[in-house]
Amino acid sequence: MTTVLAPVAGRVVGLAAVPDPVFAEGLVGLGTAIDPAREPGTAVAPIDGTIVKLHPHAYVIVGDDGRGVLVHLGIDTVELRGEGFRVLAAEGERVRAGRPVVAWDPALVEAGGRSPMCPVVALDALPGTVGALVPSGAVRAGDGLFLWH
């Protein structure tokens, strides 16, 4: 079982609240979403593992058991081409859950006309294997977010 931590501080709202159907309809996978606090913050690793993909706006960490978790910082933020994001780790690096990976400011993303909503997705998770630790409400970065059985 994997405990997936909240990568950012904010309010847990669930994937259905994400203003992008590809996440809201669960096409990317199971998980949840956090509406982040509108202040400069640091997105952290949700699990122990290796950073297999690190974009300024999104990253994937894979645990030693092969399970991958995607953290997406805002919606359509690929269009920002890294502006407003500062990468604090390196692709291929091994990290502990809770380690800072990207610094960003959700308020700036929002001011630019995009949603700063953060989907957190258990990639390739089978139906029924993901259970919320915090179904809704406030979380701090590094708090337990969901269990992946």
């Binding site: 996978g29 993909k53 994937v60 991958g68 390739d124």
Partner: peptide
């Protein structure tokens, strides 16, 4: 068939 593999392929 793996979203993880496809995203990692980049």
């Amino acid at each position: 068939k793996s979203i993880l593999s496809i995203l990692a392929l980049d």
